[in-house]
């Protein structure tokens, strides 16, 4: 029994950290009123990017913890920058958020395949060894502590600090916020930067820890799983944490459903069906408190001169 439990705790940690961080990133971006339809593309891209960075850096520095760490840091930086460009673009231009989001999603898929395959190419020539993060009790405990810190930080940021008030204000009503002097573009740039870092970190850990390698198409839909988690958690950090634990357990356990006789095709769709079901159930529940409601401006074009 203890063995099963310790296996589960170590197996859960990489999944839990990936989905929690990614859905927290999504939450930050969506709380600022940006419909994050691009999430899956960015997730696929960061997953591929971290692999290629790791290969390239390990080639120069040799395998070890440092190259792994550096590639994670570089991925976080790259994705954060791209996300902040994405969120600023949507804010400066009165543009359909869905359209730009979908475009970035497609571009992310394509770029991910190209970037990842470059890493593969280098790998096939030089046989570079990369130090992936191990499935140990120590790393798992660290992961849980890290998650607890990040969840607390995001919660305090959003609901106790002035920056959080600004983020929620531009998510509720960017026109009014801008009228009272809030620089909407700057705030959404910041939330893209912060949210993007978390999503990039999630994607990097997906490759360098949860999977331990890369193949084309990797990470596809896992961005959506994280998206579903943040919706199911009503975009509220303290709620996202436990819901993510439930989803992550499901993803970790669902391949094992085959051992009880379920066909592989059926067990793979369990997370998909669960995501849809939970999103539907959660959206249908009437929300009693303002902190749980959808940001009012989510997905709406922002044009300051609109005549109300």
């Amino acid at each position: 029994m203890m063995e099963i439990l310790s296996w589960f705790i170590t197996a859960l940690a990489p999944a839990y950290i990936v989905y929690t961080l990614t859905s927290l990133g999504n939450l930050l971006i969506e709380r600022s009123g940006i419909l994050n339809i691009a999430i899956d593309g960015f997730f696929v891209l960061s997953s591929a990017m971290s692999y290629t960075y790791a290969i390239l850096i390990s080639q120069y520095l040799g395998p070890g913890e440092l190259p792994t760490f550096l590639s994670i840091a570089l991925t976080v930086l790259s994705i954060a920058l791209m996300y902040s460009i994405f969120t600023s673009l949507i804010t400066v231009l009165p543009v359909s958020q869905g359209a730009i989001g979908l475009s970035f999603m497609f571009a992310g898929y394509g770029l991910g395949a190209i970037v990842g395959n470059i890493g593969r190419l280098v790998f096939s020539i030089h046989r570079v060894r990369v130090d992936y993060i191990g499935m140990t009790i120590e790393s798992s405990v660290l992961a849980y502590i890290f998650i607890a810190i990040v969840v607390t930080f995001i919660h305090v940021l959003l609901y106790r600090l002035k920056l959080g008030v600004f983020i929620r204000a531009v998510g509720e009503d960017p026109r009014v916020a801008s009228q009272v002097g809030v620089n909407v573009t700057y705030i959404r740039f910041l939330s893209g930067l912060l949210g993007g870092s978390l999503i990039g970190l999630g994607g990097a850990l997906f490759t360098l820890w949860r999977i331990g390698g890369w193949s084309q198409g990797q990470g596809l839909n896992h961005g959506w799983f994280a998206y579903a988690i943040s919706i199911a958690g009503w975009r509220f950090p303290l709620l996202v944490a436990p819901i993510s634990a439930f989803f992550s357990s499901l993803y970790v356990l669902s391949p094992h459903l085959q051992s009880i006789g379920l066909p592989v095709e059926v067990s793979t769709i369990v997370p998909y069906i669960t995501s849809i079901t939970i999103m539907a159930l959660v959206s249908a529940i009437p929300k009693r408190s303002r902190v749980f409601t959808d940001p009012k401006a989510l997905g709406r074009e922002f044009f300051r001169e609109e005549r109300a």
């Binding site: 999603m105 394509g110 190209i114």
Partner: peptide
Amino acid sequence: LPPGLSAYAISLVLIGVTLVVYTI
């Protein structure tokens, strides 16, 4: 091209970028 790269990946970049430009 890198050997494993699927043709559709290139199409996706073309599609994604053209869509962004067109939207703007």
